Amino acid sequence: MKSIPTLYEWVGGNDALEKLTEVFYDKVLKDDLLYPVFKNMSGNHSKHVAHFIAEVFGGPSLYTQGDKGSHATMVAHHLGKMLDEQKRQRWIQLLLQSADEIELANDPEFRSALVAYLEWGSRIAVINSTTTENPVNENEPMPSWGWGETKGPYIPDTD
């Protein structure tokens, strides 16, 4: 029986994700709505985001090992940014346009998984952007995204 590839393998690995985020953040910096949010991002921002997505999609630990990041680190980047629904939707729109532009895997199964992840992650980013307290501690595992299975809502440990 064939094994099912990870989303990371299916998308084409790190090179494909780095190309996606590079094209995407170039669009973001030209967008009147999103530019103010991202104008001070580091030169490595798009690469770090690609590494984060790679790890979430079942790839190597490029973000946690190579970039020395964590789930808590990624959440911290959104704290206090006061994102709203209009910005969230534009972010998704530009990312999906970028995916089409670079001809990222476009089969229905992959795109469904990608859009589900973007919806989930961007909605969490909006929630976290309205606070200055990080709800995720450094020991929390990285999110893991697959082909559509759900594992229920994340409920922080209150012990």
Score class of each variant (00 low, 15 high):
residue 82 M to C: 12
residue 22 E to R: 11
residue 21 T to G: 01
residue 19 K to P: 00
residue 53 I to A: 13
residue 31 D to W: 02
residue 43 G to T: 14
residue 145 W to R: 15
residue 95 L to Y: 06
residue 45 H to C: 10
residue 5 P to L: 03
residue 96 L to T: 13
residue 158 T to A: 13
residue 136 V to W: 02
residue 121 G to R: 06
residue 3 S to I: 10
residue 40 N to E: 14
residue 37 V to C: 07
residue 17 L to E: 08
residue 20 L to E: 04
residue 47 K to H: 09
residue 33 L to T: 04
residue 71 H to P: 02
residue 49 V to L: 08
residue 138 E to L: 11
residue 142 M to F: 13
residue 154 Y to T: 11
residue 103 E to G: 07
residue 138 E to T: 02
residue 42 S to L: 13
residue 143 P to I: 00
residue 72 A to P: 14
residue 35 Y to R: 15
residue 109 E to C: 05
residue 13 G to H: 05
residue 150 T to M: 08
residue 49 V to S: 02
residue 17 L to A: 15
residue 112 S to G: 15
residue 128 N to D: 14
residue 24 F to Q: 09
residue 110 F to L: 09
residue 110 F to S: 06
residue 55 E to H: 13
residue 69 G to L: 09
residue 131 T to S: 10
residue 101 E to L: 06
residue 35 Y to L: 15
residue 72 A to H: 07
residue 116 A to Y: 08
residue 67 D to N: 09
residue 146 G to W: 01
residue 1 M to E: 11
residue 63 Y to A: 02
residue 93 Q to D: 07
residue 105 A to R: 15
residue 4 I to L: 08
residue 71 H to F: 15
residue 28 V to F: 01
residue 50 A to M: 10
residue 47 K to T: 03
residue 47 K to P: 00
residue 132 T to W: 10
residue 69 G to D: 04
residue 110 F to Q: 06
residue 92 I to L: 06
residue 158 T to R: 14
residue 86 Q to I: 11
residue 84 D to H: 08
residue 58 G to D: 09
residue 117 Y to Q: 08
residue 117 Y to G: 01
residue 52 F to H: 14
residue 58 G to M: 10
residue 70 S to N: 05
residue 20 L to T: 00
residue 77 H to T: 05
residue 47 K to S: 09
residue 126 V to Y: 00
residue 100 D to M: 04
residue 11 V to P: 00
residue 52 F to T: 00
residue 21 T to P: 00
residue 28 V to E: 02
residue 72 A to T: 05
residue 23 V to T: 12
residue 127 I to H: 03
residue 110 F to Y: 15
residue 43 G to L: 09
residue 59 G to S: 11
residue 8 Y to I: 04
residue 59 G to E: 05
residue 11 V to K: 07
residue 67 D to R: 13
residue 60 P to Q: 14
residue 143 P to G: 03
residue 137 N to H: 12
residue 45 H to I: 09
residue 34 L to C: 09
residue 34 L to M: 09
